[in-house]
């Protein structure tokens, strides 16, 4: 059984590295059959936004997608797991142990 989407986002970020939201969304779309298309992309991205709103992850770098490689004119964020996020990752059993 696959993990819920937010669990998987936290698992991806628990390697301790920074990841662009576009990369996370692309990875999610390749793994989850119900996240295909533009709607699935925006839905997955909104899950990431909610995780940031809750303070589980935070943006460390931002840029505007000028070329439209992900979504033209859209703000892209590079996210990292926060301490709260790390605790929640451990709690959810998806922590990979990256520092």
């Amino acid at each position: 059984m696959q993990l819920p989407i937010k669990f998987r986002v936290l698992e991806i970020l628990s390697d301790g590295k920074c990841h662009w939201n576009s990369d996370i969304v692309c990875l999610l779309q390749s793994e989850y059959s119900d996240l295909k298309g533009d709607y699935g992309r925006d839905s997955a991205n909104f899950d990431i936004i909610e995780l940031a709103s809750n303070g589980l992850i935070m943006s460390v770098e931002s840029k505007v997608d000028e070329e439209g490689t992900y979504k033209k004119g859209f703000m892209m964020h590079k996210y990292v797991l926060t301490d709260v996020g790390k605790d929640r990752c451990v709690y959810a059993g998806v922590y990979k142990g990256g520092d």
Partner: peptide, 18 residues
């Protein structure tokens, strides 16, 4: 309509933490 049933199933089985 919003295609959430798979996510509902994935969420429901995460009993311990969710």
């Amino acid at each position: 309509v919003t295609g959430k049933f798979k996510e509902i199933k994935r969420t429901a089985v995460q009993f311990k933490s969710c």
